[in-house]
Simulated assay, not measured.
Amino acid sequence: SPHPAQLTWKLDTPDRAYEHFTPPFLLATTKLYQRIRNTQLRLIPQDDLLPVEISRYDKKIVLEALHNCIAHQDYARNARVVVIEQGNRLVFENEGEFFEGEPMDYLEGNRVPLRYRNPFLSQAMTELNMIDTMGYGIHDMYSRQASRCFPMPDYENSKARAVRLTIHGGVINPGYYRVLFQNRELSLGDILALDRIQKKIPLSNKILTRLKSAGLISEKGESYNFASAEKNKAYGIVGSDQGYSLEEQLVIDYLMEFRQASRSEIDKLLFDKLTDTMTAKQKRHKTGNLLSKLRQQGVIMNKGSRGQPVWMLSEQDSDNNRKEV
């Protein structure tokens, strides 16, 4: 047939791998999900003794995104549905522009689609409980990601007549995570606004003023940052039995994705995530202490010299981070 029905999983890291999946998609989507390196994270509030375990990706979010790709793919364009795994995020790509409205039209869960590109396929998937036809899917994905205090999904329009969705499986900015963890009653609209701040996407002055009045962000010059860690309890993420701060987890995630990093690359990764009350010298000192701690714990190692370090995950920790769940 000139119209391929195929799913492709691609691991876009230094450990490169891929696999193709063919119908029946009822089984193929589960097989593809099992290829994703969905490691366990354990969240530990500073004043608590018992950790809360959470997977890097929510299975329901992943399958909802994948099933949407299958249901809405334009099969006449002779293309695959592709899932790209990039360290701490997943990218879903399917051919065919959004068929009924735009993604954000469905964010509140109030819009009902009037038509589908593939009506018979959509009906069959509905009867198998793979999708719903009432427009709740996008709302549920955003809500579930918000409950995990992770970054919001991103829809992109970088490619004509195609849909590209990114699901984040890690922390972008520790301040965002802390604010959401401490303010569980935030509306989805406010969470989306905070997400735009961490991704450096412009917001209206009205929204910025509301967030600032609520004590969720602070203003410094022409930029806005999340309420300082001193105003919130500190939270850490652990990957084994040891406690990692959010900043340490950022370094681990970066090394998982890019395999290695120089000191200047790690400085660039962390500097804008650290509180603005610190000077550049203090931030550099804190970053140095962070790297020393991870090295002493056996999490990372320096493959370079003292003057020109090249940081990598230790072999044992790298294997632990690749463990599937």
Results as ranks from 00 to 15, higher is better:
residue 1 S to L: 12
residue 4 P to Y: 13
residue 9 W to E: 00
residue 11 L to N: 03
residue 11 L to H: 11
residue 15 D to E: 06
residue 19 E to V: 12
residue 21 F to M: 15
residue 22 T to P: 03
residue 22 T to S: 13
residue 23 P to T: 13
residue 23 P to L: 06
residue 24 P to N: 11
residue 24 P to S: 14
residue 25 F to Q: 01
residue 27 L to I: 07
residue 30 T to V: 03
residue 31 K to D: 11
residue 32 L to M: 09
residue 35 R to L: 15
residue 36 I to Y: 02
residue 41 L to F: 14
residue 46 Q to D: 13
residue 46 Q to R: 09
residue 47 D to S: 07
residue 48 D to G: 10
residue 49 L to P: 01
residue 54 I to W: 04
residue 54 I to H: 02
residue 62 V to G: 00
residue 66 L to F: 09
residue 70 I to P: 00
residue 71 A to Q: 05
residue 72 H to G: 03
residue 75 Y to Q: 05
residue 81 V to K: 02
residue 81 V to H: 00
residue 85 E to W: 04
residue 96 G to L: 03
residue 98 F to C: 14
residue 98 F to D: 08
residue 101 G to I: 08
residue 102 E to H: 04
residue 106 Y to N: 01
residue 106 Y to Q: 05
residue 110 N to L: 11
residue 115 R to A: 12
residue 115 R to M: 11
residue 119 P to S: 03
residue 119 P to V: 08
residue 119 P to Y: 07
residue 125 M to I: 06
residue 127 E to F: 12
residue 136 Y to T: 05
residue 137 G to V: 06
residue 140 D to I: 02
residue 141 M to R: 09
residue 142 Y to R: 04
residue 142 Y to A: 04
residue 144 R to C: 06
residue 147 S to K: 15
residue 151 P to T: 11
residue 152 M to R: 01
residue 152 M to H: 09
residue 153 P to I: 02
residue 154 D to P: 01
residue 165 L to Q: 03
residue 167 I to T: 01
residue 168 H to D: 05
residue 169 G to A: 05
residue 179 V to Y: 02
residue 180 L to A: 14
residue 181 F to N: 08
residue 182 Q to M: 13
residue 182 Q to C: 09
residue 188 L to Q: 11
residue 191 I to R: 10
residue 192 L to M: 04
residue 196 R to M: 09
residue 198 Q to G: 05
residue 202 P to W: 07
residue 204 S to G: 15
residue 204 S to L: 13
residue 210 R to Q: 15
residue 220 K to L: 15
residue 221 G to M: 06
residue 222 E to L: 11
residue 222 E to P: 03
residue 228 S to W: 04
residue 229 A to E: 08
residue 235 Y to G: 00
residue 237 I to E: 00
residue 238 V to P: 00
residue 242 Q to P: 00
residue 244 Y to H: 08
residue 247 E to T: 13
residue 250 L to S: 08
residue 252 I to E: 01
residue 258 F to W: 13
residue 260 Q to V: 07
residue 264 S to E: 05
residue 266 I to D: 01
residue 269 L to P: 02
residue 269 L to N: 10
residue 273 K to N: 06
residue 280 A to V: 12
residue 281 K to S: 15
residue 282 Q to W: 04
residue 286 K to L: 04
residue 288 G to R: 09
residue 289 N to G: 05
residue 290 L to W: 01
residue 292 S to E: 12
residue 293 K to Y: 13
residue 296 Q to H: 06
residue 299 V to F: 03
residue 299 V to M: 05
residue 302 N to Q: 12
residue 306 R to S: 15
residue 306 R to T: 14
residue 306 R to V: 12
residue 312 M to A: 13
residue 316 Q to I: 14
residue 316 Q to M: 10
residue 317 D to S: 12
residue 322 R to N: 10
residue 325 V to I: 14
